[in-house]
């Protein structure tokens, strides 16, 4: 009897192995197979067009001459390439470099604060038996459902008292707070995804908790670090409202603020569309560059950490 069962099991095994082979190709591969792939391709192109056209329009408009940029009705393509708009932006108010510096400074500080807080938090939540850690984690995630805009007024008064208004550190603290719940989520998952044996091998090899973190975990969670940094950068670089409330000296403005200002203040009275588009073009460049540069890690960070 047992032999018969064994035989049945073995044929069953082969049958299921064959079935698995058939199903192994994922949903995407099957979708991209045959005629459907043209449809999918067309949908992708349509989506990309919708997303990229405004960007393209901005870049083209930024290259028009001053008069052409203000023309009504607007032209689609510049009649002649001109860097006038960039020139005006360069000298706008305190100078473009000041604002770029402010934005970059706030973004860098946000990245530092984010990593400085979420790496230990992720390590603790992911690898240590902290009592009630699920509750802590939920409370941290709750931050996601409170709109930070609602807290800006009290925050402003608090920051004035702490002398953190008009300071990059102050702005970075707000941006960090905005970004924190998501970052902790990514970090915790990344820490949890590192095999236990790796940590145990390091412990046997003589590492203390700190050394395990530095020597084993940090190299293993590089994708998560990059994902968190990228998101912190983009959030801080693009954030407008908190910057508007906290930064009220024109030398402490960030790029989004100066773009808003450029819409209102021009020497000839109306909106300087050319300069505005130049500003948009410049502010978009780092986001795209970092994204393309780090895309590989960023996708891995999501797959390893968030989507388990």
């Amino acid at each position: 009897m047992s032999a018969e069962r064994e035989m049945r099991m073995s044929t069953g095994y082969f049958a299921s192995a064959r079935a698995m082979e058939g199903d192994r190709r994922g949903f995407v591969e099957r979708l991209l197979d045959g005629r459907a792939k043209y449809l999918v391709g067309a949908a992708c192109i349509a989506l990309c067009t919708v997303m990229l056209l405004p960007l393209l329009a901005s870049v083209l408009a930024s290259l028009k001459s001053t008069a052409e940029a203000a023309a009504v009705p607007p032209t689609y393509f510049p009649h002649g390439l001109s860097l006038d708009s960039y020139h005006r932006l360069w000298n706008f108010q305190a100078g473009l470099l000041t604002y770029l510096g402010n934005s970059a400074g706030a973004a860098l500080l946000t990245i530092l604060f984010c990593l400085g807080l979420t790496i230990p938090a992720g390590y603790a939540l992911g690898r240590f038996p902290v009592p009630g850690k699920e509750f802590f984690f939920l409370v941290l995630l709750l931050g996601l459902i409170i709109p930070y805009q609602a807290l800006l007024t009290p925050l402003f008064f608090l920051f004035v008292q702490l002398k953190l208004h008009n300071s990059l550190v102050g702005l970075a603290i707000v941006h960090t707070a905005i970004q924190l719940p998501f970052s902790i989520y990514i970090m915790r998952n990344a820490f949890e995804a590192v095999p236990r044996e790796l940590e145990e091998a390091a412990v046997i090899d003589g590492c203390n908790s700190w050394q395990v973190l530095v020597r084993v975990f940090l190299p293993a969670i590089v994708p998560a670090i990059i994902t968190v940094s990228l998101f912190a950068f983009i959030t801080s670089w693009n954030e407008f409202l908190a910057a508007l409330v906290i930064m009220n000296k024109d030398t402490s403005f960030t790029l989004p603020l100066i773009l808003a200002a450029a819409r209102q203040q021009t020497s000839i009275g109306g909106t300087d569309w050319g300069m505005l588009q130049a500003g948009i073009t410049i502010s978009v460049i780092p986001c795209i560059a970092f994204y393309l540069l780090l895309q590989k890690y960023y996708v891995a960070g999501f797959l390893n950490g968030a989507v388990k």
């Binding site: 091998a201 046997i204 090899d205």
Partner: peptide, 30 residues
């Protein structure tokens, strides 16, 4: 680390970011 033992794991648990030489010398480096 103080028990004078060494352990070989089922999954090997090699440090993926280190070379073979660094893996072997890891405890010495620590």
């Amino acid at each position: 680390a103080k028990r004078h033992i060494a352990m070989v794991f089922q999954s090997y648990a090699l440090y993926p970011h280190l070379t073979v030489r660094q893996n072997i010398a890891f405890s010495l480096s620590v």
